[in-house]
Design a protein around this nucleic acid. Sequence first.
DNA 1: AACGCTACCAACCGCAACGGT
DNA 2: AACCGTTGCGGTTGGTAGCGT
Length: 320
Amino acid sequence: MGRSPCCDENGLKKGPWTLEEDQKLVKYIKESGHGSWRALPKLAGLNRCGKSCRLRWTNYLRPDIKRGKFSQEEEQTILNLHSILGNKWSAIASHLPGRTDNEIKNFWNTHLRKKLIQMGIDPMTHRPRIDIFSSLPHLIALANLKELMDQQQPWEEAAQMAKLQCLQYLLQNPPSLSSPSNNMHTTFTDMETMDISNSLLSSPPQLASVQGLDDSNPFSRLPDLQIPCDYRISSSSKDDTAQAQAQAQAQAQEHAVLSQGENTCNSTWLPSSSAVPSVTETLISNLGDASCSSNFDVAAPSVWLDDHQLFQDPLFHNLL
DNA sequence: AACGCTACCAACCGCAACGGT
DNA sequence: AACCGTTGCGGTTGGTAGCGT
């Protein structure tokens, strides 16, 4: 695949276009069409490379370009299409008459992406963020619990059972401790997270007798934290798993059709698409007033709601 | 007024795909 | 099949406007 020398040629102007250059380009294309972009600058009397001319035309000067703010409908369309197509800006732009891929890309990066992050949604997967910050409340609770355990406070056995069940619930419904996404806000490494978790899981010996789970290891039924965890909002029965896999396959095929064989949204680290529906599909209508600054102020996905309800439970406050 | 910070967006860069020879 | 030229695309950069201190 050869590469065109294009703009590295000496003497060609770069940078912002002047009004005069715009007028020359528009005049030439209106009269003669763009033809070969490479030949165009010379013919149009422009000291630019063809690539620059093409970009200026397609992104700015084309008469059918719609400028101005994106409407709610356009915003919704972009979110929907991005959840299916990923960063296929040109494919998304083809569904938005008058909008260029560059404009949509910029709008995504400056507005929509931030909104989704604010709402606790991973902008790449359109699913609840599963990074260290969304796990932080759980980890803090675990840390406090371990502190209490280390102090060997004389708990009632029933209370211990309840608390440990609570802990087990947390660990069986974890926000995944490691995120595959390109999440800029993840400052803890996966291994650091694992260290924290594993240190918390080194239980004091006196708890083994009250677990009733496994005498040798009270946490033996907890998920293997070295393995990326699926969301566990639904039953973990084998039947459901098989059903989810079948649904995932069906959806993967659907996505393959929609995205012409390319689907950047899928990740081997993520649960099947059918297990956790894309939250942007249900939260899109709230985006317009997503002015909140905290993940916890907005309508959170169900996988979080369960945990938040747990945190509000008086029983859980006793743990803290 | 000066400075720093942030948001926005036009434009650039480099790679990939495609078609012609 | 290999090479070359052209175009398309997505990621990134840099200029600048707006705002707060």
